[in-house]
């Protein structure tokens, strides 16, 4: 009897804990977990499972400062590809990232994943933000 009571209370606490997650947190989790699958399918081959890149050929995704400074351009980099010299972790990279024609929602998810993995912590990059950024693509 006692056991039932205790487990009942425990269950209640868990339910509360889950439902108490703020909407923001729920949204973030949705974006992040979806982004992880998209990352595996579209990005991981080149950028690596830990975002480590490949030698001097493919830049790592671990430079939080670069990601912060270029936050508004990241959507375009995915949609339009990226060419020319960039500096990541004070190392120069010059190559070409091919175009990946993902839907805006997919871009939002994968960017949320990348910018909150590999030591980065930038919060949710949501669909509205991606759509606004995409309009400014050159």
């Amino acid at each position: 009897m006692k056991l039932k009571l205790i487990s009942g209370i425990l269950l209640l606490i868990i339910v509360f804990a889950v439902s108490c997650q703020s909407d923001k947190q729920v949204e973030f989790n949705r974006y992040y977990s979806g982004g992880s699958a998209i990352y595996q399918a579209h990005c991981e081959n080149c950028h690596g499972a830990k975002g480590e890149g490949l030698q001097a050929l493919i830049p790592p995704l671990t430079d939080s400062i670069y990601l912060k400074n270029n936050k508004a351009s990241l959507s375009c980099y995915i949609k339009k590809g990226l060419k020319g010299k960039i500096i990541i972790h004070e190392r120069e990279f010059e190559g070409e990232m091919p175009v990946d024609d993902l839907a805006p929602i997919e871009i939002a998810k994968v960017l949320t994943y990348v910018t909150n993995s590999f030591g980065n912590k930038m919060g949710t990059i949501d669909l509205q933000r991606v759509q606004a950024d995409l309009e400014k693509c050159r």
Binding site: N45, C46, L54, E96
Partner: peptide, 11 residues
């Protein structure tokens, strides 16, 4: 210029 499996292979 292989965008798919080559980077993984050579990693």
């Amino acid at each position: 210029t292989c965008p798919s499996i080559c980077p993984v292979m050579h990693r």
